[in-house]
């Protein structure tokens, strides 16, 4: 599945907020079909890195290209339609919309009919809406939350909200998925379940995935390559077993966490 063709390429990325340098000269790439991990201690700049890819944060220097096209100066919605989708560290579902409406949204974020047809309520409009609902149901089934389709998303328990976010991210027509700590707050059993789920998704949807996660076992199980970020700089890159034995990484990240336990 993994080819050497790069889907995402980031060169010499620098992001500054006022006097603070959050990302400092990072080079990264993701190959087509790859499952890449991004780890690092808190405040390392992982989420900022995601935000720069999705267009929420404007890089100060460097380049980001997706399938050869630059992402700089593009707004988040445009980037989304190019095929990049994500989940959020602090869940950002639409709380008062139903689960089904949440998952449908990315499929009609560019409405498929004009607004005059919408106002007239033409039959073609109803038909288009129905097709999207059916597709959305498929995603809900895939993530195992179909039974909650009519619930207000905000009323779901935490774990299901995380699943809903993944379902919503998948519903966008995507080729790269960015997952920001999907296992946050989960216990070991739930983590294992998530690993299985993500493995399945990676195979079924034929997409590239980049995963930020603090549960190191989840990352080691899923990713074929791992980047380690520390204080805005790239500390190491390589397959899981190399990362595990890299002394710098152990000192900066793994060791610290082991002691913490």
């Amino acid at each position: 599945m993994t080819s050497s063709e790069k889907i995402l390429e980031v060169n010499d990325l620098v992001i500054r907020f006022g006097g603070l340098t959050a990302i400092d000269g990072v080079n990264m790439h993701i190959n087509k079909g790859e499952f890449v991990g991004l780890i690092g201690p808190n405040g390392a700049g992982k989420t900022t890195f995601f935000n720069s890819i999705t267009g929420n944060v404007t890089p100060s220097e460097g380049s980001i290209s997706f399938n050869g096209e630059s992402l700089l100066k593009k707004s988040p919605d445009v980037i989304s339609h190019m095929g990049i989708s994500r989940t959020f560290q602090n869940i950002r579902i639409f709380p008062k919309m139903t689960v089904l409406e949440n998952v449908s949204l990315p499929m009609h974020s560019k409405p498929s009919y004009n607004f005059f047809s919408a106002m007239l309520g033409l039959p073609s409009v109803k038909k288009a809406d129905k097709i999207i609902q059916e597709k959305a149901m498929d995603f809900l089934h895939r993530l195992g939350i179909a039974e909650y389709k009519d619930y207000e998303a905000g009323t779901l328990p935490y774990g299901l909200q995380r699943r809903l976010e993944i379902a919503r991210a998948l519903a966008a027509d995507l080729s790269l998925l960015l997952l920001d700590e999907p296992a946050a707050g989960m216990n070991n059993d739930e983590c294992n379940e998530l690993v299985e789920l993500l493995q399945g998704i990676h195979e079924d949807f034929d997409i590239s995935i980049m995963l930020i996660e603090h549960h190191i076992d989840v990352v080691l199980n899923l990713c074929s390559r791992i980047y380690v970020l520390n204080l805005g700089q790239l500390l190491a890159e390589g397959p899981p077993h190399e990362i595990q034995s890299n002394p710098d990484v152990i000192r900066a990240y793994l060791g610290e966490r082991r002691e913490g336990r």
Binding site: T54, N56, S75, P76, D77, I79, S80, H81, S85, R86, F88, R92, I93, F94, P95, K96, M97, E101, S104, L105, P106, H108, S109, K110, P111, S112, Y113, F115, A118, M119, G121, V125, A128, D129, I132, R168, A172
Partner: peptide
């Protein structure tokens, strides 16, 4: 319609709506 749902999404969670492709 789809337009109305996009409006609600913007109202509820602007950042996520934009990243799911809604043009604010």
């Amino acid at each position: 319609s789809q337009y109305g749902k996009n409006c609600v999404a913007v109202q509820q969670q602007e950042v996520a709506a934009e990243m799911m492709g809604v043009s604010l």
